[in-house]
Amino acid sequence: MRLRLLLDVMCGGLVSYLRMCGHDAAYALDRGIEDDRDLLELAREEDRTLVTRDVQLAGRAGDAILVESRDVREQLRELVAAGVPLALDERPSVCGRCNGPLERVPADASTPEYAPDPDGEAVWRCSACRQCFWRGSHWDDVRATLEGL
């Protein structure tokens, strides 16, 4: 189940986790939005569930998930308790940097110097920002964090 979420500025540490789990997770600062009215309007316009630590803002939203902790692991636990599925996609689909769609890089294609050769390892490229992703040590760290929730 892929959710459409909007994270306010207090929940930025959750963005990459949610995207790596395949959720469409928009982040307020990526959109240049900090004002509560603008956040609520964007959530309504894009049919997104607001994720926030702000009790009053959550109360004003039609659909919101309130997280209380400042700690990212605890926030992840709160999301799970709220019914947000948190499991890594075996085939990454959402860019961790910009939330754009990922496409598999063909084995005979070239990749930037920082990325592995797609002939030896599966690599995905964001069609929006062109960032490359693969299941390396960061992937393993995120998997371990999610499994420990």
Rank of each mutant, 00 (worst) to 15 (best):
121 E>P: 06
112 P>M: 06
125 R>H: 13
73 R>T: 00
113 E>A: 13
105 V>P: 07
94 V>Q: 05
68 E>I: 15
78 E>R: 04
68 E>L: 15
123 V>N: 02
106 P>S: 00
117 D>A: 09
77 R>D: 09
112 P>K: 03
81 A>V: 12
101 P>T: 09
112 P>H: 01
85 P>G: 00
99 N>L: 14
116 P>A: 07
115 A>D: 02
100 G>R: 14
91 R>M: 04
120 G>N: 09
102 L>G: 01
114 Y>F: 13
120 G>E: 09
118 P>Y: 01
80 V>P: 08
70 R>I: 14
74 E>C: 10
108 D>S: 12
114 Y>P: 05
126 C>A: 01
99 N>A: 15
78 E>Q: 14
77 R>M: 13
113 E>I: 05
120 G>H: 12
98 C>W: 11
118 P>W: 02
115 A>P: 04
85 P>Q: 00
81 A>Y: 07
98 C>E: 09
75 Q>P: 05
109 A>Q: 13
86 L>D: 03
118 P>L: 01
124 W>N: 13
108 D>K: 05
116 P>S: 07
101 P>F: 06
80 V>K: 13
76 L>V: 01
104 R>L: 08
74 E>Y: 04
90 E>T: 07
122 A>H: 13
93 S>G: 08
91 R>E: 09
97 R>G: 00
102 L>A: 07
119 D>M: 06
109 A>G: 05
110 S>Q: 11
87 A>D: 08
105 V>H: 01
107 A>K: 15
125 R>P: 10
124 W>I: 02
113 E>C: 03
119 D>R: 14
80 V>H: 09
